[in-house]
Design a protein around this nucleic acid. Structure first.
Length: 309
DNA sequence: ATAGGGTCCTGGCTGC
DNA sequence: TGCAGCCAGGACCCTA
């Protein structure tokens, strides 16, 4: 379940391995993996061939590699990736065995001093996707002039995604005002990528546990201090996860070298049904909500009188 | 416009 | 032991 920390781990790996490489050839092995690329798999592959990838960028759970045609010219397009539930971006030797759920393969030319290498998109459940998208000015970061490395630009399909809590442009006060205008529950709001990006089911539960807020708490009743508390909790827990390589439950989430992270052992709420709360000892409760699970402490996070879903 | 529910997808696990 | 059915969930899509 890659959320912000896991995607950032992948971004860092790609920064090390693919930056400055030129695409020799892209192959789409499963059309669903590029379903959001409206012009189809052949167009997707055609747009990648011959282009050089710049340092990867990220917002929330989205990751993109700006594509350069010429040095010192601002990129106009990017390879945009979302890992979904089970997506992996793996780098390695081009002639290694194909993975079972290999969906897209991108081979790079071996430049000077560059060992042959390819980038593979492997995705069991195919909720993830890749596409080549136009880069447009980033409304979140302000009107900074587009730079040759792609700074100040975002892929057009994700212009509606809000800043994530680990980026400089994140505005906690603006989020508080938006929450007060909403008529929904705090967890649903945390999962709404147009309000705050990068938070998924796991880190939403962890942030709410740390902030001692119930998931069904109406957003319009939040105080400024409570909103600040849950944002700080989300930042803290995601930074802690990032420091140990992210959260892994199984081999489905791995970094570009295929290695798992270690944060699962540090989770306080998610997946801990009936286990004792690490603050008060009460058994952690699991509720059904939005067709998924919510884990919380019944004592530290009491259900509000007026609950919102 | 916003709120909220349905849907996709595969394989590991559960229970009969 | 075999196998049907359940479960995981991000973001798009639809309706009211």
């Amino acid at each position: 379940m890659p959320e912000l920390p896991e995607v950032e781990v992948v971004r860092r790996g790609l920064a090390r391995w693919t930056t400055g490489r030129t695409v020799e050839k892209a192959e789409v092995l499963h059309p669903r993996a590029v379903r959001r690329h409206a012009a189809g798999p052949a167009d997707f592959a055609g747009r990648l061939a011959g282009r050089t990838v710049l340092p990867p960028r990220r917002r929330g759970k989205y990751l993109w590699l700006p594509l350069a045609d010429a040095p010192s010219e601002a990129p106009s397009e990017a390879l945009l990736a979302h890992l979904g539930m089970s997506g992996q971006l793996l780098v390695g030797e081009p002639d290694r065995e194909p993975q079972k759920h290999l969906r897209v393969r991108i081979a790079f030319t071996g430049g000077p001093a560059a060992d042959p290498l390819d980038l593979r998109f492997v995705d069991q459940r195919t909720f993830g996707h890749l596409m080549v998208a136009e880069l447009v000015p980033d409304a979140v970061a302000g009107a900074a002039a587009p730079a040759p490395d792609g700074a100040g630009l975002v892929p057009a399909p994700i212009v509606h995604i809000a800043a994530d809590p680990l980026e400089d442009a994140f505005d906690g006060d603006a989020l508080y005002r938006a929450l007060r205008r909403r008529r929904t529950g705090i967890k649903r709001a945390l999962l709404d990528q147009s309000l705050i990006s990068g938070v998924g089911n796991i880190y939403a539960d962890e942030a709410l546990w740390r902030a001692r807020l119930h998931w069904a708490r109406p957003t319009e009743t939040l105080t400024r201090a409570e909103a600040a508390r849950v944002v700080a909790a989300a930042q803290d827990v995601m930074r802690a996860a990032l420091a140990v390589g992210g959260t892994s439950f199984d081999s489905l989430y791995v970094d570009v070298d295929g290695e798992s992270g270690y944060f699962e052992r540090s989770l306080d709420a998610y997946g801990r049904r009936d286990e004792p709360c690490r603050r008060c000892g009460s058994p952690i409760r699991r509720d059904e909500f939005m067709n998924r699970s919510s884990y919380s402490c019944p004592v530290c996070q009491p259900r509000p009188r007026r609950a919102r879903y």
